[in-house]
Nucleic acid binder design. Structure first.
Length: 514
DNA sequence: AAAATA
DNA sequence: ATTTTGA
DNA sequence: GAAAAC
């Protein structure tokens, strides 16, 4: 994913063909975004007792940010005896100070109660969520599977997985400048600073209109009592200053300096080499060398690596992505009757050029074990025919099954893609990075979600569900405390999955947060 | 570097 | 003021 | 166990 140099100027529109084989049709009644609170939702939280604490006991004081434009939430908060005060940061928001149970951890209550995250999450979702997932006692995912209606996106959310991030932003320049700053922080091994810039860039990317002045930002966001604009993920100190500089002068001088520095260029070149990540690139780029060539001569890297990197740096047009996937699937079908597959990654997000090709394959009625064996066979087949030329992650294909079923379910490799009209024979081959992933059919939609990205979308997705004590990875969802896996066999589509997780449906083309 | 928590 | 930041 | 991979 990071393989893309700063010049990520995605060339424009190309109908993102929806030849996704994943069914994501789902009837949603789009009625009530002004959800009403059903009795059953409220009941468990009302332990009884007097008013000012009503049900929620008097341990700690937590705060939650709630948008004012959600009257039902305010009403709800009041009915629970929560204190609502105006924040001095943000006029459109209020701070709810609630007496709330300590979140997580073991509890020995006689009656069910919800953690304060419920309120905050409801605020984030812009609507009142069912409490089932927030009940602190035994959580049973099956009795809360109500959600076949999409939640609306929330442009003001701090979480990328609630916002819309189209492929092309009207503020591409600013976003690009922020990304350069991000890259620089990565290069300096300042991981968290880099994350902050990524978040800020994603936030800007989600603005639907061109920003020319602070007033433009106000239109989408909120301001505090001092008439100062405040935007989530854009702090008051550093990043705010950079953006103001941009608004005033049309550029961020630090970004330009970075972009012109030789060490920055060398660092990026190094990172594009397989097996060299931030750490080694950092080390090598400060050995005094000024070019890759020099490092090759010193023996730090090989010419072969450099040449391969040059191939892999080239964007892959959509047509080629689907034709490569076609070759893979054609061979897959000789080993497996009717596979289900999806092309994920940037392709699914609608990018006109991809950095690599992510193909996800499953099969109804197969176990993960069987899928893994299938993948090993597929790998061998693709290698034998000379299509798959390199395996980055070696699959141990000890054909005699030695108990140790150490087959893997992801294949990271390189294929030789003959650029179609290659009139000339040998020379017209381009090497492309391909990831082939197999999974259990029950986790298919979750895998699709995970392999579609973007990185920031995934990050915020997982951060968000974690606050409900759910852990999510590419292949399963489970309860953090009980370690019980959530049964996903009833999930019919990626969209259904998102509804199940109480997340809004963001079309893949709008997950381009990075 | 920013936001959440204590 | 300290902790968290995706898995 | 660190780095790199997604």
């Amino acid at each position: 994913m990071k393989r893309r140099a700063p010049s990520d100027k995605s060339t424009t529109d190309e109908e993102c063909d929806d030849s996704d084989e994943i069914a994501q049709n789902q009837d949603q009644d789009d009625n009530s975004s002004q959800a009403t609170l059903s009795e059953s939702d409220l009941a468990p939280a009302e332990g009884g007792g007097d008013h000012s604490g009503s049900g929620i006991n008097n341990s700690t004081i937590k705060t939650a940010l709630i948008p004012l434009n959600s009257p039902s939430l305010n009403q709800l908060a009041t009915s629970l005896g929560l204190l609502i005060t105006h924040s001095d940061i943000d006029v459109n928001d209020v701070i709810v100070k609630s007496e709330c149970l300590p979140n997580k951890h073991k509890q020995q209550h006689a009656h069910p109660s919800v953690c304060h995250h419920w309120l905050r999450d409801s605020a984030a979702a812009g609507r009142i969520l069912p409490i089932a997932l927030y009940v602190l006692d035994d959580y049973n995912p099956n009795n809360s599977e109500d959600g076949s209606d999409d939640l609306p996106p929330n442009p003001q959310s701090k979480n990328a997985c609630f916002r819309i991030h189209p492929l092309n932003s009207p503020n591409e320049h600013l976003v690009h400048a922020l990304r350069i700053l991000k890259q620089d922080r990565v290069a300096r091994d300042e991981r968290w600073n880099a994350l902050a810039y990524s978040r800020a860039a994603a936030m800007v990317k989600s603005f639907p209109h061109r920003i020319r002045s602070k007033d433009d930002i106000r239109l989408q966001l909120s301001y505090d009592s001092n008439d100062t604009v405040h935007t989530k993920n854009i702090g008051e100190k550093k990043i705010r200053a950079k953006i103001e500089e941009y608004l005033n002068y049309g550029r961020i001088s630090e970004a330009e300096t970075i972009q012109n520095s030789a060490s920055h260029k060398l660092y990026n070149a190094l990172c594009s080499i397989q097996g060299i990540g931030p750490r080694r690139a950092y080390e090598l780029s400060r050995t005094g060398a000024s070019s890759l060539g020099e490092l090759v001569e010193r023996g730090s890297i090989t010419q072969e690596d450099v040449t391969l990197a040059q191939h892999l740096e080239l964007g892959i047009p959509r047509t080629e992505v689907s034709s490569i996937a076609g070759v893979v699937m054609e061979n897959a079908r000789t080993l497996l009757p009717h596979p289900t597959h999806a092309i994920c990654g940037g392709y699914r997000r609608g990018k006109s050029e991809s950095n690599d090709i992510d193909i996800l394959i499953t099969h109804h009625g197969y176990t993960l074990q069987q899928m893994n064996e299938f993948l090993a066979n597929l790998a061998r087949r693709l290698q034998d025919m000379g299509f798959l030329t390199k395996l980055m992650r070696q699959l141990s294909l000890s054909d005699g099954h030695s108990d140790k079923h150490d087959y893997q379910s992801t294949l990271l490799g390189v294929v030789a893609s003959s650029s179609k009209y290659g009139t000339t024979d040998s020379a017209q081959v381009t090497f492309r990075r391909v990831d082939i992933i197999v999974c259990h059919p029950h986790s298919f939609h979750l895998e699709v979600l995970a392999w579609t990205g973007s990185v920031m979308y995934e990050r915020d997705l997982r951060a968000f569900v974690k606050r409900r004590n759910l852990k999510l990875n590419a292949s399963c969802v489970y309860d953090e405390h009980t370690n019980n896996e959530v049964d996903l066999s009833g999930i019919r589509s990626e969209r259904h999955l998102l509804a199940f997780l109480h997340l809004p449906w963001i079309a893949p083309e709008n997950r381009n947060c990075d």
